[in-house]
Amino acid sequence: MSVVEKGRKVGLSISGYFRKLARSPAWTYLKRDERAWIGFALVILVVGTAIFADFIAPYGINDRLIEEAPFARPPGGAFILGTDSQGRDVFSRVIQGTRIALEIGLLLVALEAVIGVPLGLMAGYYGGKVDELVMRAVDVALSFPGLVLAAAFIGFFGSGLNNLIIALSLTGWAAFARITRAQALTIKEQPYVESARAIGEKDRTIISKYILPNGISPLIVIATMTLPAAILLASALNFMGLGVQEPTPAWGAMLTGARSEVLDGIWWTALFPGVAIIITVLGFNFLGDALRDALDPRLREYKYV
Protein backbone atom coordinates (compact mmCIF):
# COMPACT_ATOMS: atom_id res chain seq x y z
CA MET A 1 0.00 0.00 0.00
CA SER A 2 2.82 2.35 0.81
CA VAL A 3 4.21 1.94 -2.67
CA VAL A 4 0.91 3.00 -4.13
CA GLU A 5 0.75 6.06 -1.93
CA LYS A 6 4.23 7.00 -2.96
CA GLY A 7 3.20 6.65 -6.57
CA ARG A 8 0.16 8.85 -6.06
CA LYS A 9 2.26 11.52 -4.52
CA VAL A 10 4.42 11.86 -7.60
CA GLY A 11 1.56 11.95 -10.03
CA LEU A 12 0.66 15.59 -9.88
CA SER A 13 -1.53 18.16 -11.49
CA ILE A 14 -0.34 21.00 -13.72
CA SER A 15 -1.01 23.57 -10.99
CA GLY A 16 0.86 21.35 -8.56
CA TYR A 17 3.75 21.54 -10.97
CA PHE A 18 3.95 25.29 -10.69
CA ARG A 19 3.73 25.13 -6.91
CA LYS A 20 6.61 22.69 -6.93
CA LEU A 21 8.56 24.89 -9.33
CA ALA A 22 8.28 27.94 -7.07
CA ARG A 23 10.12 26.05 -4.34
CA SER A 24 12.76 24.44 -6.57
CA PRO A 25 16.40 25.45 -7.05
CA ALA A 26 15.59 26.14 -10.71
CA TRP A 27 13.53 29.09 -9.58
CA THR A 28 16.37 30.48 -7.48
CA TYR A 29 18.67 30.07 -10.44
CA LEU A 30 16.21 31.76 -12.77
CA LYS A 31 15.77 34.72 -10.46
CA ARG A 32 19.52 35.37 -10.58
CA ASP A 33 19.75 35.18 -14.38
CA GLU A 34 19.83 38.61 -16.03
CA ARG A 35 18.58 37.16 -19.31
CA ALA A 36 15.43 36.02 -17.54
CA TRP A 37 14.76 39.55 -16.33
CA ILE A 38 15.46 41.20 -19.68
CA GLY A 39 13.37 38.61 -21.46
CA PHE A 40 10.58 38.85 -18.92
CA ALA A 41 10.50 42.65 -19.18
CA LEU A 42 10.35 42.54 -22.99
CA VAL A 43 7.67 39.86 -22.98
CA ILE A 44 5.56 41.85 -20.51
CA LEU A 45 5.99 44.90 -22.74
CA VAL A 46 4.90 42.99 -25.81
CA VAL A 47 1.98 41.17 -24.19
CA GLY A 48 0.84 44.40 -22.52
CA THR A 49 0.94 46.18 -25.87
CA ALA A 50 -1.13 43.43 -27.45
CA ILE A 51 -3.76 43.56 -24.69
CA PHE A 52 -4.05 47.34 -24.57
CA ALA A 53 -3.44 47.95 -28.28
CA ASP A 54 -6.76 49.70 -28.73
CA PHE A 55 -5.90 52.19 -26.00
CA ILE A 56 -2.33 52.78 -27.11
CA ALA A 57 -2.91 53.21 -30.84
CA PRO A 58 -3.90 56.82 -31.51
CA TYR A 59 -5.51 56.13 -34.90
CA GLY A 60 -7.39 53.35 -36.63
CA ILE A 61 -5.29 50.93 -38.62
CA ASN A 62 -6.94 51.79 -41.93
CA ASP A 63 -7.59 55.49 -41.42
CA ARG A 64 -6.16 57.51 -44.30
CA LEU A 65 -4.86 60.46 -42.38
CA ILE A 66 -3.00 62.37 -45.07
CA GLU A 67 -5.12 64.21 -47.62
CA GLU A 68 -2.56 65.08 -50.26
CA ALA A 69 0.69 63.67 -51.66
CA PRO A 70 3.17 62.76 -50.41
CA PHE A 71 1.16 60.36 -48.32
CA ALA A 72 4.21 58.87 -46.66
CA ARG A 73 5.40 61.46 -44.14
CA PRO A 74 8.54 60.98 -42.00
CA PRO A 75 8.26 60.56 -38.21
CA GLY A 76 7.37 63.72 -36.32
CA GLY A 77 4.46 65.84 -35.28
CA ALA A 78 1.21 63.97 -34.86
CA PHE A 79 2.69 60.77 -36.31
CA ILE A 80 5.59 59.71 -34.11
CA LEU A 81 6.61 56.88 -36.45
CA GLY A 82 5.45 58.61 -39.62
CA THR A 83 2.80 57.53 -42.12
CA ASP A 84 2.94 54.93 -44.88
CA SER A 85 2.38 55.31 -48.61
CA GLN A 86 -1.38 55.27 -48.11
CA GLY A 87 -1.29 57.90 -45.42
CA ARG A 88 -1.91 55.51 -42.53
CA ASP A 89 -0.27 55.96 -39.11
CA VAL A 90 2.71 53.58 -38.83
CA PHE A 91 2.73 53.67 -35.03
CA SER A 92 -0.90 52.55 -34.76
CA ARG A 93 -0.34 49.78 -37.26
CA VAL A 94 2.80 48.51 -35.52
CA ILE A 95 0.99 48.52 -32.16
CA GLN A 96 -1.98 46.62 -33.55
CA GLY A 97 0.41 44.23 -35.31
CA THR A 98 1.56 42.99 -31.90
CA ARG A 99 -1.73 41.28 -31.37
CA ILE A 100 -1.55 39.53 -34.74
CA ALA A 101 2.01 38.37 -34.20
CA LEU A 102 1.24 36.88 -30.80
CA GLU A 103 -1.98 35.36 -32.06
CA ILE A 104 -0.17 33.62 -34.92
CA GLY A 105 2.69 32.56 -32.67
CA LEU A 106 0.52 31.16 -29.90
CA LEU A 107 -1.87 29.38 -32.23
CA LEU A 108 1.03 27.84 -34.11
CA VAL A 109 2.84 26.67 -30.97
CA ALA A 110 -0.43 25.30 -29.60
CA LEU A 111 -1.10 23.37 -32.80
CA GLU A 112 2.46 22.03 -32.89
CA ALA A 113 2.14 20.90 -29.28
CA VAL A 114 -1.24 19.32 -29.91
CA ILE A 115 0.27 17.29 -32.75
CA GLY A 116 3.71 16.67 -31.33
CA VAL A 117 3.10 15.91 -27.65
CA PRO A 118 0.68 12.97 -28.09
CA LEU A 119 2.87 11.48 -30.82
CA GLY A 120 5.94 11.84 -28.61
CA LEU A 121 4.15 10.32 -25.63
CA MET A 122 3.03 7.36 -27.68
CA ALA A 123 6.46 6.86 -29.22
CA GLY A 124 8.21 7.02 -25.86
CA TYR A 125 5.68 5.04 -23.88
CA TYR A 126 4.91 2.22 -26.29
CA GLY A 127 8.23 2.07 -28.13
CA GLY A 128 8.67 -0.50 -30.90
CA LYS A 129 6.99 0.07 -34.26
CA VAL A 130 5.09 3.18 -33.12
CA ASP A 131 8.32 4.72 -31.92
CA GLU A 132 10.15 3.90 -35.12
CA LEU A 133 7.40 5.36 -37.29
CA VAL A 134 7.07 8.57 -35.28
CA MET A 135 10.81 9.12 -35.07
CA ARG A 136 11.26 8.58 -38.79
CA ALA A 137 8.64 11.26 -39.41
CA VAL A 138 10.39 13.51 -36.87
CA ASP A 139 13.71 13.11 -38.68
CA VAL A 140 12.16 14.03 -42.00
CA ALA A 141 10.30 17.00 -40.55
CA LEU A 142 13.37 18.30 -38.75
CA SER A 143 15.67 18.00 -41.74
CA PHE A 144 13.26 19.78 -44.06
CA PRO A 145 13.31 23.58 -44.18
CA GLY A 146 9.97 24.64 -42.74
CA LEU A 147 9.76 27.73 -44.90
CA VAL A 148 10.06 25.81 -48.18
CA LEU A 149 7.42 23.27 -47.23
CA ALA A 150 5.11 25.97 -45.91
CA ALA A 151 5.49 27.99 -49.11
CA ALA A 152 4.70 24.95 -51.24
CA PHE A 153 1.69 24.08 -49.08
CA ILE A 154 0.35 27.61 -49.39
CA GLY A 155 1.03 27.48 -53.11
CA PHE A 156 -1.40 24.60 -53.42
CA PHE A 157 -3.99 25.41 -50.77
CA GLY A 158 -3.99 29.18 -50.78
CA SER A 159 -2.86 31.89 -48.36
CA GLY A 160 -4.55 33.23 -45.26
CA LEU A 161 -4.15 32.93 -41.51
CA ASN A 162 -5.40 29.34 -41.15
CA ASN A 163 -3.32 27.94 -43.96
CA LEU A 164 -0.29 29.84 -42.72
CA ILE A 165 -0.53 28.17 -39.34
CA ILE A 166 -1.23 24.72 -40.75
CA ALA A 167 1.63 25.11 -43.23
CA LEU A 168 4.17 25.95 -40.54
CA SER A 169 2.97 23.23 -38.18
CA LEU A 170 3.83 20.62 -40.82
CA THR A 171 7.45 20.67 -39.66
CA GLY A 172 7.18 22.44 -36.30
CA TRP A 173 5.50 19.61 -34.38
CA ALA A 174 8.66 17.50 -34.60
CA ALA A 175 10.55 19.40 -31.89
CA PHE A 176 7.70 18.76 -29.45
CA ALA A 177 7.46 15.10 -30.39
CA ARG A 178 11.17 14.54 -29.90
CA ILE A 179 11.35 16.21 -26.51
CA THR A 180 8.20 14.52 -25.24
CA ARG A 181 9.46 11.15 -26.37
CA ALA A 182 12.76 11.63 -24.56
CA GLN A 183 10.88 12.61 -21.42
CA ALA A 184 8.47 9.70 -21.67
CA LEU A 185 11.40 7.31 -22.11
CA THR A 186 13.04 8.37 -18.85
CA ILE A 187 9.90 8.81 -16.81
CA LYS A 188 8.38 5.47 -17.71
CA GLU A 189 11.33 3.74 -16.04
CA GLN A 190 10.73 5.58 -12.76
CA PRO A 191 9.57 3.47 -9.81
CA TYR A 192 6.37 5.45 -9.36
CA VAL A 193 5.28 4.65 -12.90
CA GLU A 194 6.10 1.01 -12.41
CA SER A 195 4.11 0.94 -9.19
CA ALA A 196 1.20 2.62 -10.95
CA ARG A 197 1.38 -0.07 -13.60
CA ALA A 198 1.59 -2.72 -10.90
CA ILE A 199 -1.70 -1.63 -9.34
CA GLY A 200 -3.32 -1.92 -12.75
CA GLU A 201 -3.72 1.69 -13.85
CA LYS A 202 -4.68 2.07 -17.49
CA ASP A 203 -2.05 3.23 -19.97
CA ARG A 204 -4.04 6.37 -20.62
CA THR A 205 -4.17 7.23 -16.93
CA ILE A 206 -0.47 6.57 -16.51
CA ILE A 207 0.39 8.80 -19.46
CA SER A 208 -1.85 11.69 -18.50
CA LYS A 209 -1.39 11.54 -14.73
CA TYR A 210 2.22 10.52 -14.26
CA ILE A 211 4.26 10.97 -17.39
CA LEU A 212 2.93 14.22 -18.82
CA PRO A 213 2.96 16.31 -15.60
CA ASN A 214 6.41 15.09 -14.62
CA GLY A 215 7.87 15.81 -18.03
CA ILE A 216 6.44 19.26 -18.48
CA SER A 217 9.53 21.38 -17.75
CA PRO A 218 11.21 20.72 -21.10
CA LEU A 219 7.90 21.25 -22.85
CA ILE A 220 7.60 24.71 -21.35
CA VAL A 221 11.16 25.43 -22.45
CA ILE A 222 10.53 24.18 -25.99
CA ALA A 223 7.29 26.14 -26.22
CA THR A 224 9.04 29.32 -25.10
CA MET A 225 11.83 28.79 -27.58
CA THR A 226 9.53 27.78 -30.42
CA LEU A 227 7.33 30.84 -30.11
CA PRO A 228 9.92 33.38 -31.35
CA ALA A 229 10.95 31.05 -34.18
CA ALA A 230 7.29 30.70 -35.13
CA ILE A 231 6.82 34.46 -35.14
CA LEU A 232 9.89 34.90 -37.35
CA LEU A 233 8.79 32.23 -39.83
CA ALA A 234 5.26 33.59 -39.98
CA SER A 235 6.52 37.12 -40.57
CA ALA A 236 8.69 35.85 -43.43
CA LEU A 237 5.68 34.18 -45.06
CA ASN A 238 3.61 37.32 -44.51
CA PHE A 239 6.39 39.33 -46.09
CA MET A 240 6.31 37.10 -49.18
CA GLY A 241 2.58 37.68 -49.40
CA LEU A 242 1.82 34.06 -48.55
CA GLY A 243 0.08 34.58 -45.22
CA VAL A 244 -1.96 37.37 -43.74
CA GLN A 245 -2.80 39.94 -46.42
CA GLU A 246 -3.04 43.68 -46.65
CA PRO A 247 -4.69 45.71 -45.15
CA THR A 248 -4.27 43.61 -41.98
CA PRO A 249 -1.32 45.21 -40.15
CA ALA A 250 0.83 42.11 -39.75
CA TRP A 251 4.45 43.21 -39.33
CA GLY A 252 5.72 40.98 -42.10
CA ALA A 253 3.01 42.13 -44.51
CA MET A 254 3.80 45.77 -43.70
CA LEU A 255 7.35 45.18 -44.89
CA THR A 256 6.30 43.85 -48.29
CA GLY A 257 5.76 47.32 -49.73
CA ALA A 258 8.56 48.82 -47.65
CA ARG A 259 11.05 46.91 -49.77
CA SER A 260 10.48 49.23 -52.74
CA GLU A 261 9.73 52.29 -50.62
CA VAL A 262 13.26 52.43 -49.16
CA LEU A 263 14.49 53.04 -52.70
CA ASP A 264 12.68 56.37 -52.54
CA GLY A 265 14.26 57.13 -49.20
CA ILE A 266 11.16 56.15 -47.18
CA TRP A 267 12.90 54.21 -44.44
CA TRP A 268 10.42 54.52 -41.56
CA THR A 269 7.84 52.15 -42.98
CA ALA A 270 10.55 49.49 -43.06
CA LEU A 271 12.41 50.23 -39.85
CA PHE A 272 9.68 50.14 -37.22
CA PRO A 273 7.81 46.92 -38.01
CA GLY A 274 11.20 45.18 -38.03
CA VAL A 275 12.14 46.65 -34.67
CA ALA A 276 8.83 45.40 -33.30
CA ILE A 277 9.63 41.89 -34.54
CA ILE A 278 13.11 42.03 -33.01
CA ILE A 279 11.83 43.19 -29.60
CA THR A 280 9.25 40.41 -29.52
CA VAL A 281 11.52 37.65 -30.75
CA LEU A 282 14.46 38.75 -28.60
CA GLY A 283 12.28 38.86 -25.48
CA PHE A 284 11.03 35.32 -25.90
CA ASN A 285 14.50 34.08 -26.90
CA PHE A 286 16.08 35.57 -23.78
CA LEU A 287 13.37 34.09 -21.60
CA GLY A 288 13.57 30.74 -23.37
CA ASP A 289 17.35 30.54 -22.97
CA ALA A 290 17.19 31.40 -19.30
CA LEU A 291 14.37 28.91 -18.69
CA ARG A 292 16.28 26.22 -20.52
CA ASP A 293 19.42 26.71 -18.46
CA ALA A 294 17.46 26.84 -15.23
CA LEU A 295 15.09 23.94 -15.84
CA ASP A 296 17.15 21.54 -17.85
CA PRO A 297 20.72 22.12 -18.96
CA ARG A 298 20.58 18.93 -21.02
CA LEU A 299 18.16 20.55 -23.43
CA ARG A 300 20.81 22.76 -24.95
CA GLU A 301 21.29 20.65 -28.05
CA TYR A 302 17.64 20.99 -28.99
CA LYS A 303 17.87 24.61 -30.02
CA TYR A 304 15.18 25.03 -32.61
CA VAL A 305 16.23 27.87 -34.89
Binding site: P228, V262, P273, I278, N285
Partner: peptide
Protein backbone atom coordinates in the same frame (compact mmCIF):
# COMPACT_ATOMS: atom_id res chain seq x y z
CA UNK B 1 24.45 35.34 -31.39
CA UNK B 2 21.03 35.58 -29.79
CA UNK B 3 20.52 38.92 -31.47
CA UNK B 4 21.51 37.32 -34.76
CA UNK B 5 18.83 34.65 -34.54
CA UNK B 6 16.25 37.22 -33.45
CA UNK B 7 16.55 39.54 -36.45
CA UNK B 8 14.22 38.79 -39.35
CA UNK B 9 16.68 38.40 -42.19
CA UNK B 10 14.42 39.92 -44.84
CA UNK B 11 14.14 43.06 -42.71
CA UNK B 12 17.91 43.16 -42.28
CA UNK B 13 18.16 42.90 -46.06
CA UNK B 14 15.85 45.86 -46.57
CA UNK B 15 17.76 47.95 -44.05
CA UNK B 16 21.11 47.10 -45.66
CA UNK B 17 19.71 48.01 -49.07
CA UNK B 18 18.70 51.35 -47.62
Amino acid sequence: ALFGVSIPNFWLGIMLIF
